[in-house]
Structure formats: structure tokens, C-alpha cells
Design a protein around this nucleic acid. Structure first.
Lengths: 242, 242
DNA sequence: TGATCCTTTTCTGTATACAACTAAGCTCCT
DNA sequence: AGGAGCTTAGTTGTATACAGAAAAGGATCA
């Protein structure tokens, strides 16, 4: 069930705490002490403490003045900002890839991913799970397409911000009637972004990647306003206060 | 000398290790074990380990497969990318401030900082130390001007990337003959950025903030190509390989 | 009854102990 | 002499011990 390797306890603590928070088992604003978390997970404080440090860094926990942590709570604006930042950073990755040229191996894999995405959104043989996997890979490749480790790192970090991940809202979309149209639209944007990059059109690539992230924002607003019942199914949305 | 408070040992370890790395006492690529670091700092492994975790996160240490860390080494491209990212994120902060409106209290403080910066760069009463302090405050206020904690956080994180900080190259500029001209130019850009924000000109504000970060890139290239002897005086430049 | 002070418990930050694993050095064999 | 296998020192990940600080709770006094 859980990992058994060398850093097993730390990895377990991180994964389980994160899913407790994102899943809403630990309500936003709740105090979380190291001892309580350690006892709950059946571990010693050392790896749990390390995991909590990391979660503070990710923004899922807020350190409290007196010591100890509190589960973070987010406003809609926070989530919108997180998505905006991901768009900005993916836009930068796209622009730099256009300006500096792409890493050939990554571009080639990108090509295959795009083809596979085309097949996944084809109405005649629609494959949701494949789409989710390939979409994640597309965004990973996009981050690394310019060949800059620093850029790739920061793009990926931005995607870890609450609900900013490109896959965050796919869970919910599965249940929304016209989600196939939405996914087809997203795939169309994927194509245009890569097209702009290969044509060395940096400004266009940047603008398209930014706009692409707006899909997540639209999904966020749709879920929160039209389908509030779905909110608890989307990772991280349980933390939205107000 | 060093901090004595509650989390004193961790804070000391972080600060001292960081300055050892950035200052070049630990050469790029050198292996750094927890035990060695702990012994060198006269602390136990616990806070040192925590500090090293943080430094890995900041990118100053690379975790090694077998366990343990190595001092990171950077290429010129890495530093250029880090500066580019800071520019992009400060540009986003500026654009959002323009689009959404500014936080009045921060805008007011910004106003005072700009006036003080004018005085600091005035040739008749030039004050380098004041400039350094006020410049840092300007960038801090800019990050927070839009009122988004998430944006402010990420801007500040980007400024911690190696040599990307807006103050990184000021140390060196003190010794460069025509540095006063450069600082005056920077202050002119500060004014234009805030002007654009207050006029709600988001695109202009973003472009100006990006271009402003290019000053750091110009300084980087100047130091590396024209004044290599200065490189060791600029924090982080000792880590540049190749 | 209500507030204040003191006691007691809890929690964090730090240090240390221990086991598993890595890596290097040494011995022994060919 | 050169290489394979073993031993041993070193390093990390985890658990635990301990001291100091905050929080909680009760007792005392007005």
C-alpha cells in the first residue's frame, strides 16, 4: 500500500497529509500539531515535521506565530491568482521555447503526445483517462521545451499551487455534460501553442499559453457557481472559504 | 552576533550555510554532508538538516541520488533565466496592480519610497546605502501592490533564485565608475512602472517591469565579461561554472 | 460571581541514539 | 601484481529524549 523504500516515512507523511488536506478531511483553518499528525499517521515526529515544512512551502499549511500550523484556507481570488500565475509561467516557457528554439527530443515527444491527444478527444473513441494522462504530459513537456531547468522548475512549482494544476479540474469535468467540447477546445489550444512555438512566434505562443490556463479559471468559476455540489470532488476546492 | 530566539539554531544554520555557498567558501559541485555541515557550524544535525532541505528548495544545493547534497553550480544561462523569471513575475504583479487597482496603503508607501529614491540618486547628495535599502523596499512593495498574497509570495520566491535578486548586483555597481548613471536610469524606470500602474495601463506596466529586470541581466553580463575580477564580490557569482 | 495568579500539561525546537545502507579500504587468492 | 570479496568506517533516515515556552485549567481572592 504505502511506499517502503529509503525515505518511505517522509514520503508517506507528505502524501497522506497532503491528501488529508486537499481532500478536506482536515478542515480549512484547523490547527494541526506535529504530535497529533504523527500520532494520526503512526509515525515519529521527525518525518512528519519534515512533511509539514514542505506543505507550508507549498502553501497548504500556514505557520502560526506561536509555533505549529493551521490548514490554509483560500479565497476564490487566491485560486484565480494561482491559475493566473501558472498561465504566466507556462506562457514564459512557451515564449522562451519560441525565441531560443526547442529541445529536439522534447519536441518530438510533444509531437506524439499531441497526436495521442487527438485520438483521445476523438468522439468516436473518446478516452478520458488517456486524456488526463496525456494532458499532464503535455504540460510537463511544455515546461521543459525551452531547455531551461530553472524555468521548468518554477513552472512545475506554480502548478502545485492549490487548484492551479492543469489536471485539477478534470476530475469534475468527467461529470459535466458538455465536457467533451471543452476537452476538444483545450486540445485545439495545445496545437496552436506548439504551432506558434515552432514558428518562432514568441509573443503569440505566450499569449496562447496564458489563455489556455484560463480554461482552468473558467472551470473553477463554473464549478463554484453552477455546480457547487461538485466542489468537494475537485482536489483543493474544499479549502475555499467564503 | 547570531540569533538567539526560539528557532535560533535553524535560522543560524540557514543563514550561515547560505552565505557559505553564495560567498563561495563552499565551491560549486562540492559534496556537503549533514554531519560535516553540522560539525562546521557547531550544531546538531537536526536544524542543519532542515536548513539544507530549504537550500535544496532554493536551488543552492542539489540533492544527490545516494543521499546527501552537492553545492549547485550554475551556468550563465541559468542566471539569465532566473532574472528573466523575476522580470516576468514582477511584470505580472505590476499588470495585476494596474488591472485590479492598487492597495492604497502600499501605494502611499510606494510614493514615499520613490521620493526617497529620487533624493538618494541626486548627484548632489548621493547615498548609495540608502539606495540599496530603498530599492529593496520598492521591489517588495511592487510585489504586494496588487494585494495578492499568492502573487507576492511567488515574486519574492523568484527573487531568491541565485543572482536574481534586485539587489544582487548593487554590491558590484558600487565599484563601477558610471554606476550613478545606471542607478538614475533604474530610478527613472521605477517611476514609469508606477506611473503606468496608476494609469491602469496593465500591458505597459508589465512590459516596463520586465525591461527593468533586464538591468540586472546587463549588469550580470557586464561583470562577467568586462570585470571578471568583480565576480567574487557579487553574491552568487562564485557558483557560475563554465 | 468574576478575575487573576499559579500550577500543570502540552507542544515545539534541539540534541542524541540507533539501524540500514553506502562506499571505501583491506585482505586474500590467483 | 591485479582483482574479487569482505570488513569497517561513514552517512542518512528515523525514533526518541529533554529543556524551554506556550496554553489550559484550577484555585484563591475580591
Amino acid at each position: 500500500m504505502t511506499k517502503q523504500g529509503r525515505k518511505a516515512q517522509f514520503a508517506n507523511a507528505l502524501i497522506e497529509l497532503r491528501s488529508l488536506i486537499i481532500g478536506g478531511s482536515l478542515p480549512a483553518g484547523a490547527r494541526l500539531t506535529e504530535t497529533a499528525a504523527a500520532e494520526r499517521l503512526g509515525l515519529s515526529r521527525t518525518p512528519v515535521r519534515q512533511a509539514m515544512d514542505r506543505l507550508v512551502d507549498e502553501g497548504l499549511l500556514d505557520r502560526i506565530d506561536t509555533g505549529g500550523c493551521r490548514v490554509a484556507s483560500f479565497t476564490m481570488t487566491d485560486l484565480v491568482d494561482a491559475i493566473e500565475l501558472r498561465g504566466v509561467l507556462e506562457g514564459t516557457a512557451a515564449r522562451l521555447a519560441a525565441e531560443r528554439g526547442v529541445v529536439p527530443e522534447i519536441a518530438e515527444r510533444m509531437d506524439h503526445v499531441l497526436d495521442a491527444l487527438d485520438r483521445a478527444v476523438d468522439p468516436s473513441r473518446f478516452d478520458f483517462d488517456a486524456y488526463v494522462r496525456l494532458n499532464a504530459e503535455f504540460h510537463d513537456l511544455l515546461a521543459r521545451l525551452a531547455g531551461s531547468d530553472i524555468v521548468a522548475r518554477e513552472v512545475e512549482r506554480a502548478a502545485r499551487l492549490p487548484a492551479a494544476s492543469p489536471v485539477a479540474f478534470l476530475q469534475g469535468q468527467e461529470l459535466i455534460p458538455d465536457f467533451r467540447v471543452s476537452l476538444g477546445r483545450a486540445q485545439h489550444q495545445h496545437r496552436r501553442i506548439v504551432e506558434a512555438i515552432l514558428a518562432r512566434e514568441g509573443a503569440r505562443a505566450e499569449a496562447l499559453a496564458r489563455e489556455h490556463a484560463r480554461l482552468a479559471r473558467a472551470n473553477l468559476e463554473y464549478v463554484m457557481h453552477e455546480r457547487p455540489g461538485l466542489a468537494e470532488r475537485v482536489p483543493g476546492l474544499a479549502l475555499v472559504a467564503e
